[in-house]
Nucleic acid binder design. Structure first.
Lengths: 183, 183
DNA sequence: CAAGTCAGTTCATTGACCGAACCAACCCCG
DNA sequence: CGGGGTTGGTTCGGTCAATGAACTGACTTG
């Protein structure tokens, strides 16, 4: 949201959090990053966000220490954006929002979350009913739920069809340059 | 945020939740409502939100079934805005955001939350360590924390100084009409 | 009736978002 | 080397929302 001057005067941790991650699109970028999206173009097509806004959000989130920009190849220089611990710590907030959305706005669950170590589905607040303890984000398996309606035209959406570990990088088929077309 | 057309295409409960409560100021209005704020003017001065935006948000939230508009006196007709169950259900998401804000952005806790029945401070995810179970929002006591820096000019801020039950309506001193001034 | 409160609405200005176009670096193929 | 293609941006005009200040209208009290 970036309430600018007004949020700054708020005597509240919630307001300060929203000052950083409350802007339009920001939490969805972080959600995608948790799902394993790391590259500019993957965010772009999966979110349907305007290019300028995405560039702005990635820069802001990097400056806030929520994402880290990392060179992952040199030949054509390419960077990826990876969540830091500070970004990963937003998982409980995102999950709480998602649960509210499903319970209150109706619909089948789109994705379900499981403790990878023991195969139990997570409780609403992220604990494992079998183990009793909170589950680290890296130990969470995400599986498609009955309400999921993927977009076949979107490589990221396709990559998220199978069960996946959270934060595990998505491999969209690199289409490489200059492929001659069939016709 | 109200991503408008774009959020609608998102195959995700988080996006649908943000479509409803993600706009600027919206979550802060709901936070205040959880703290017991109910009246237009109290939201106005406590949040420092532009009047037009507040009116818009209250109307939207009422239409979404998150707030309920209620006539509480007739002589000058006055309405108050009270959280519905759907609105109260946002408490875990707001708490998760607040915890992230405090842990990641630094600072002392502004407010602490306790199980009213047994006097134990709540765990980060809203459970009572003593009783073991989740605590209903109405059974939560809010107490000022070390980081709280109240604004003496704001009646709501003053009313929130003492320990309070969540959702318990705030009584700002009704100043009534037409008071002659000291000078 | 004057003065003041509460809950808005109206309005001009500013800023953010949007979509499309454009650009630069690079890579491969012929 | 040139053409075509991809990635990751930036630039630009149009539009839409937020902001702050002023105004309205119902009401009440002195």
């Amino acid at each position: 949201m970036a309430l600018g001057k007004d949020y700054a005067t708020q005597e509240c941790s919630i307001a300060r959090a929203l000052e950083v991650v409350g802007e339009r699109w920001t939490l969805l970028v972080i959600r995608d990053a948790l799902y394993g999206v790391r590259r500019y173009n993957d965010f772009l097509v999966h979110l349907g966000i305007p290019r300028a806004v995405l560039a702005n959000r990635l820069q802001t989130l990097t400056a806030e220490g929520i994402l880290e920009k990392r060179r992952y190849q040199e030949s054509p220089p390419r960077d990826e954006y990876v969540l830091t611990d500070r970004g990963i710590a937003l998982w409980p907030a995102l999950r709480a929002l998602g649960i509210w959305g499903r319970e209150q706005l109706g619909g089948e669950p789109m994705r379900t979350f499981w403790h990878a170590d023991c195969g139990t589905e997570l409780s609403p607040y992220g604990a494992c009913p079998t183990c009793g303890a909170l589950v680290a984000v890296r130990d969470i398996d995400m599986r498609p739920g009955p309400g999921l309606d993927p977009d076949p035209a979107d490589p990221v959406s396709r990559a998220l069809l199978g069960p996946r570990r959270l934060l595990q990088p998505i491999e969209t088929e690199q289409q490489g340059p200059a492929r001659r077309r069939p016709a």
